[in-house]
Nucleic acid binder design. Structure first.
Lengths: 206, 206
DNA sequence: TTTGCGATGTATCGCTGCGATACATCGCGC
DNA sequence: GCGCGATGTATCGCAGCGATACATCGCAAA
């Protein structure tokens, strides 16, 4: 019972206590793209950026930062240009993106597959839509919409199957849940329409 | 400025110690209260019950079941009334509630504190409102509402602080998120009203 | 002056729960 | 008699949370 990863895809690295981070990686890279920052501020900005949608904690942020450093996607700015003469003094770590980091960010922002229409993946990508190519935006929006439609369909089917066994509170819960999803679909429709309207040739640079 | 939980409720709720799952425990107990079942069906029913709101996986269900067995809150029915003569044959495990389990369920359903107005805790409890005392229902509904209002307030404040730095997509995300919360508050208001209406003396028995 | 406090800042530990996977049995059509 | 999908039990690796520890800095009340 040990070591059986079929490993069809997924980079076989990590280990050594290394923490992988899907969405956080994009979030960090996306923010650092603007200006260098240290962890504390990164978190504040991140949570301000995402608002009601999501909040990250230090328990995930710092391990992620550590890993990104290791992978060379970000670097400690205070280390490469500081005088270094000051012996041992260091309490702040200012992170900046490296060239590899920028490349990675571009790859992540170009991703328009399933990962980009899951709840987390979508939300975080949407927050960085300003840096995303117009055609990718559209594909993500549409993918998200069909993902939600799928979900609604399966919930509705399950509901139809069990409706008579459910009490009024459960029914109410389902109704509310379904309406939330419907509302998001409507929102997506508006966004898609306005994307299409602003010209299918519009490519947003950087 | 502080983005920490201000702790207006503080330690009064007697945490300070490793606390067990809570959510799944309640779900399992709540379902098993009706009829005995095995894990597979438990999961199906659970996800049908919760619908769009939430879905549990085996990775959490089975460990939870194991722990509940250990704690004596549920028992393996096929073990205590089966002939036992059949040597070694066993593939299904049918769980039933014990007296301790029923007691525990009552305690969980009576809980109307902070744990009951977090996203998960609230949803799961709402699904079992049919088994909850009317006054507890009301307190949970009101607690949930004020929790959401708190959240909206802090998001709005953060938004006001950073609005000018955000691009149109991020603004759209915030708007949508805020509206979702507002919608849930309105929903809660309706529920509260209808709870109050149906008489403050109404105590639902099991 | 000192003391205390809240914001800033870095970091880790224990835990919950997910997702993928493995494997076994059963019923049923062909 | 065979395949195949539903039923059924179970675990592993990992992401991310929440609490916590600790250190420094600026500032205002004592």
């Amino acid at each position: 019972m040990s070591d059986h990863r079929a490993g069809s895809f997924g980079p076989a690295e990590g280990r050594t206590g290394g923490k992988r981070s899907g969405v956080l990686e994009l979030a960090v890279l996306g923010l650092l793209h603007e200006t260098p920052m240290h962890g504390y501020e990164l978190r504040k900005r991140l949570n301000a950026l995402l608002g009601a949608f999501r909040a990250f904690s230090y328990g995930s942020l710092y391990p992620c930062l550590k890993e990104l450093l290791l992978r060379g996607l970000i670097a400690d700015e205070s280390a490469d240009d500081a005088p270094r003469a000051l012996a041992g003094r260091r309490s702040k770590i200012v992170y900046r993106m490296t060239a590899e980091g920028k490349e990675r960010l571009q790859d992540l922002l170009a991703e328009a597959g399933p990962a980009a229409w899951e709840d987390d993946g979508f939300g975080i990508r949407f927050a960085f839509f300003g840096q995303t190519r117009a055609d990718v935006r559209l594909r993500i929006l549409e993918g998200r919409r069909s993902r939600l439609e799928e979900r609604m369909e399966s919930v509705r089917a399950a509901l139809a199957r069990t409706r008579e066994r459910l009490d009024s509170y459960t029914l109410e819960l389902h109704k509310h849940g379904l309406e939330s999803v419907e509302r998001e679909v409507r929102w997506l429709n508006e966004l898609i329409a306005s994307e299409r309207e602003s010209g299918p040739g519009a490519n947003t640079p950087t």
